[in-house]
């Protein structure tokens, strides 16, 4: 991470955090992507003047113990905008950010609980009139108010972008893993509560929410025109009961077979 002298002094970063949900146990936890947003914020702040330049902000319940697992990354405090569970978080967040005007806002791509629509960074960007960079893997440098950012593309590919400060970025799973959360600092961190007036999310209260149903696998539907075809489709042996084994073939044939498969799968570029 490279920062030039000017930006490193007064680079103000806000990492937005939410309460995560463990995929197998469903328990509240530090969310994977939000943890990465804090990690990136910490790295940026440490490259500059120090941790005090990073504000970790949550809108919700300050009593939620999962927030402590963010604090365990070495934060002295977590700022919490106290909200009821049904409240809409975007407008109090916007209000806060308008007042404090950071240079960089980091969020996860999608929350692990609730609607998890991934709209928060976009809505904040729209309201603040800032650019939004989705799915970043790293911030490479910040020079003269312009940040060079690496955006994560599928399958480990990266795209380089530049964007002028201030901006909002959502942090992808490809970013550096969050540091370990230690029990001691987590337990001692301060939860700075702020009250905020907010409206109830009335649209959402009309929705019904249930545990996810398993989606049926798409079947290969055979649109047969003749009886013979339908018969054949119904009785055909399922494919692939064990792979092909090339034994007692020459080395050339074996290599050719592998090569053909790689070519067919399109992994040779």
């Amino acid at each position: 991470m490279q920062l030039d002298a000017n930006t490193s002094m007064d680079l103000k970063i806000v990492s937005l955090i939410s309460v995560g949900k463990h995929p197998t146990s469903g328990r509240a936890r530090r969310a994977e992507q939000d943890g990465r947003a804090v990690e990136l914020g910490l790295t940026l702040a440490e490259a500059g003047r120090g941790k005090q330049n990073l504000t970790v902000l949550h809108a919700g319940d300050s009593q939620q113990s999962a927030l402590r697992s963010y604090a365990g990354m070495g934060l002295e405090s977590v700022r919490v905008i106290q909200l009821r569970e049904s409240a809409d978080a975007v407008s109090p967040l916007t209000e806060y950010l308008r007042k404090h005007v950071p240079d960089i806002i980091l969020t996860g791509v999608r929350a692990e609980s609730g609607e998890s629509s991934g709209m928060v960074p976009y809505l904040l960007a729209e309201k603040l009139g800032w650019p939004v960079v989705p799915r970043i893997a790293n911030i490479v440098s910040i020079k003269e108010g312009v940040a060079e950012v690496l955006q994560a593309l599928p399958r480990g590919q990266r795209r380089a972008l530049t964007v002028r400060l201030p901006f909002i970025a959502s942090v992808d799973n490809a970013a550096a893993e969050p540091r370990q959360s230690a029990f001691g600092p987590a337990n001692r961190a301060l939860m700075e509560q702020q009250q905020a007036g907010s409206e109830t999310d009335t649209v959402r209260s009309e929705w019904s929410e249930l545990p996810a149903r398993k989606r049926p696998k798409r079947l290969k539907v055979v649109k047969a025109k003749t009886a013979a075809d339908r018969f054949k489709a119904a009785t055909a042996k399922p494919q692939g009961s064990g792979g092909k084994v090339l034994k007692d073939k020459t080395v050339t044939e074996q290599a050719q077979a592998i090569f053909d498969l790689l070519l067919e799968e399109g992994v040779l570029r």
């Binding site: 949900k21 995929p23 469903g26 999608r110 929350a111 692990e112 609980s113 609730g114 609607e115 998890s116 629509s117 991934g118 709209m119 009309e206 929705w207 019904s208 929410e209 249930l210 545990p211 996810a212 149903r213 989606r215």
Partner: peptide, 24 residues
């Protein structure tokens, strides 16, 4: 978002990182 079943009336979306179905 993450809508996987829809008609003109209602839509079912995956919420909470794919662990819930939201009908709306």
């Amino acid at each position: 978002t993450q809508a996987w079943q829809m008609n003109t009336e209602t839509t079912i979306c995956r919420g909470a990182s794919g662990s819930t179905d939201i009908t709306r």
